[in-house]
């Protein structure tokens, strides 16, 4: 993701409301977006577009990075070598996805350090899903199947999002993500074909991860104030509720195929709509997790901050080595 040098502080513009934008430039921008043209880093864009993207892309990046933690816990405890190598590759992919996205956000004029700082101080949010604990091996299956499945639903339309660097990052991510979902579903199907205990373990993981996975799509349309503007600017291509419904329709039969039951007594096939009707989501729980009250929210942030602090000497040593080499080469 090509980026020009960051603006320095003096150049940084203060937030501009949409009403204060140059109406001619704004109209030209909106016409381009409406015609499905991509916006590139050096193009003119309204400040609100820039800020929405910075928020959305950096949150997305943080989610990839924090998402490594619940799975990283299980690398040493994976049941066999095949599963261990798969999980290692998956966690490494998540790190890569975080980096593609940070780089895309940097093209908008925010620095990597500012984003990391915002994550560590709790100013920036990440997906609520990672504030739930991974209690058993089946949770690794459920995360791949449901959490990565939900992520794919969200990400596929983002490959055509209007901001070029974000769209390009999403193309790479989507290419890599489908193996994540499949390996998770395979873990679940192996467990459900196993002993009674293994089958119960798989069902228990589904019971705990189902509702948090549905919450990953965000609040319902009428409670999502930014959706209309984001759809208009083609940052988002589909609403939260549309994506959630798609996910339910695809996932329920996958569960049934391996003998798992979705923990929702209201779930019913609606012949007329050609879709599943499903129960009411506990949005109080969602907002509590967003506020940072998730079961393992504190541990996640602490783990991130610790990793950053523990790595400080490496960053310093590499920089010192680089400047020493530069000086030596200049002297020669």
């Amino acid at each position: 993701m090509y980026t020009t040098e960051l603006k320095d502080k003096s150049q940084k513009s203060t937030p501009v409301s949409l009403a204060d934008e140059d109406p001619q430039k704004l109209a030209a921008f909106e016409a381009r977006v409406a015609a499905d043209d991509f916006i590139e880093p050096k193009d003119w864009m309204p400040e609100a577009y820039r800020n929405t993207l910075i928020r959305q892309i950096s949150q997305h990046a943080h989610s990839e990075i924090v998402g490594m933690l619940p799975e990283g816990n299980w690398i040493t405890r994976a049941p066999n070598l095949r599963r261990k190598t798969i999980l290692l590759a998956k966690v490494q992919d998540e790190g890569g996805h975080g980096l593609y996205l940070y780089a895309a956000a940097e093209t908008l004029g925010i620095s990597r350090e500012e984003m990391i700082e915002a994550l560590h101080t709790g100013k920036a949010k990440y997906s609520t899903i990672f504030n739930y604990p991974t209690l058993t091996w089946a949770d690794i299956g459920a995360i791949g199947w449901l959490v990565d499945g939900a992520a794919i639903m969200n990400q596929v339309p983002l490959q055509r999002t209007s901001y070029g660097p974000y769209a390009r990052a999403m193309v790479r991510i989507c290419k890599e993500e489908s193996f994540h979902q499949r390996q998770g579903y395979e873990i679940m199907s192996v467990l459900t074909a196993g002993t009674g205990d293994q089958k119960r373990m798989a069902q228990d993981a589904l019971d705990r991860w189902w509702w948090p996975s549905l919450m990953m799509f965000g609040p319902p349309n009428d409670k999502s104030p930014n959706t209309a503007q984001s759809v208009r600017w083609r940052i988002k291509r589909e609403t939260n509720d549309e994506l959630r419904q798609k996910f339910v329709d695809v996932t329920v039969p996958q569960g049934e195929a391996i003998g798992l039951r979705v923990p929702d007594p209201s779930l019913r096939w609606n012949e007329e709509r050609g879709s599943y009707d499903f129960g009411v989501i506990d949005w109080e729980e969602f907002y509590a997790v967003v506020r940072g009250e998730g079961p393992v929210a504190k541990e996640r942030t602490q783990a991130r901050v610790k990793a950053w602090k523990d790595g400080a000497w490496v960053r310093e040593a590499a920089a010192a080595h680089a400047s020493k080499r530069t000086m030596r080469m200049a002297a020669e």
């Binding site: 993701m1 090509y2 490494q92 890569g96 980096l99 590499a318 080595h321 680089a322 080499r325």
Partner: peptide
């Protein structure tokens, strides 16, 4: 294909290889 942060060229090559 994209970008990376690194202290020097060699490190950038290694990071790019991984990413």
């Amino acid at each position: 294909v994209g970008s990376v942060h690194a202290a020097d060229g060699r490190m950038a090559i290694e990071a790019a290889r991984d990413v």
